[in-house]
Write a protein that binds this DNA or RNA. Sequence first.
RNA 1: GGCGGCGUAGCUCAGUUGGUCAGAGCAUGCGGCUCAUAUCCGCAGUGUCGUAGGUUCGACUCCUACCGCCGCCA
Length: 513
Amino acid sequence: MPPERIHITTAITYSNGPPHVGHAYEYLAADSYARFMRRKLGKKNVTFVTGTDEHGQKNRDAAVKAGLAPKAFADQISAMFKQAHAGLNISYDYFVRTTDPVHEAFVQKMLARSHTSGNIRFREYEGLYCVGCERFYTEKELLPGNLCPEHNQKAELLKESNYFLNLEKYRDRIRDQIKRNRDFIRPERYRNEALKMLDEPLADLCISRPKARLDWGIELPFDANYVTYVWYDAFWAYLSELPDTSDDALKAILPVTEHFIGKDILKTHAVYWPAMLLAVELPLYRSLNVHGFLNFGGARFSKSSGNVADPLAYEANPGPDVLRYFLLRDVVYGLDGDFTEERLIERYNADLANDLGNLTSRVLSMAARYFDGEVTAHPASNREDAAICEAFAGVAPRSDAMLETLAFNRALEVIWQALDAANKYIVATSPFTLAKDPAKLPRVAEILANLLEGLRVVADTLAPFMPVTSRKILDLLAIGESIAHAPFGQGLKPGHHVKPATPLFPRIDAKRS
RNA sequence: GGCGGCGUAGCUCAGUUGGUCAGAGCAUGCGGCUCAUAUCCGCAGUGUCGUAGGUUCGACUCCUACCGCCGCCA
């Protein structure tokens, strides 16, 4: 039973470089889900947060490398991501930067709360420290001879005092939550992995960094010599800039919060984040929706090999919604996917140009040619029409059911099955043949009424996945918001006028590359 | 090293609790239609369902071992 209200988040991007298709994938999945939920629960009942994670060692290092102050560098990166969100039509409500004063104040509030409730301990710590990495390693992580795997230089024994969050205290509660609730972490493979992480006792989580070592972070409210660890900082971005961050509001929003994250940050979200919440006596989130990685032509993406595509380029050409369609249709949520331009173009031609675009075109053309664009009949239900009416009527509920379980690909498949049924229906009823006999025009009108009404339902169901295209089709059908969501058969009425066809997705010549 | 996942037509993958499950889409070939973006419809395939055993009247579906790829934890 879905809640009446929902809060959706993407990971708060920690990046020292520009956005690529891998980032875009997460935004697009979360965005489609958010749009879907808005349609279902109403705009007011959905909030959607994204943003950039700007503190920490790596960001500071990248800034130094770029010859900029950390904040100036963060401004640059953050602006790039914000621009990417806009270009990809990501419908977020809040874009949180972890350097925003509101966020910083919120984090300090939570730190203070954990501290006063006795869940944060200060103690001396001795470990093997790599000066190059500026971080501690466990012996197991190091190469023989205590060599750092990154720098191949010897890690030194270093003594440092830090603040620690007791994770072990919460291990049982977190594990119980995962066990009790099948949807807490999904898909199931990640749920299993998370459970395994909680089988063994957990070491304390270090949540501070001495300013002497790293000063690019949020100062601990109870010790001015320290800043907080970047992860502790970042999680709170999911909540920090909501309009109401009172305890009551947080207690209401967390149980309806759905996080979209990549599999690389499963542990932090399945173990650390719940412990952080429990340490301030807040409830846990509703579910963690874990997606896989995107490969590029079979190879893992890497900045150095230059196979990281710029997602915004695809919005310009082949056009808006195409990257969204491809990623959501071709990748199974939770599994790794493969991105290549060849596959993108294959999908574009086969699904968007041939199926969706051409069907829209042929239906609108007939409507224009035979009836001047006027709908002159109600959707009919002759024996011949029963199957198609059923197909159209079933699109939305069947697609929605798939989306509930994050099966974006299956949801789109359902829509395309309806397109397929429509093409078969046209051949079976041959309105273009009937139209040659004036006596049969009333029947042609019925057929077209069914098809136009079907297109409307398809366009509406498609809206979360392809918002721009959906709007374009609805515009061609001259459909306003008010009747866009009506069930099949209750939208277009006789007397309604639709517009002439225009190609939505011109075919791409395969030879061009 | 421990645990887990995957290996099904050229490609991407579906295959619920073992018995029309050997399938879909794309790509390919042939035929048809003409409203439509050389689009649409129909037909045609190819597969030792990773390998070798086992359980069963019967296994892609369960068990064992092995091979290959991957992930998580060590």
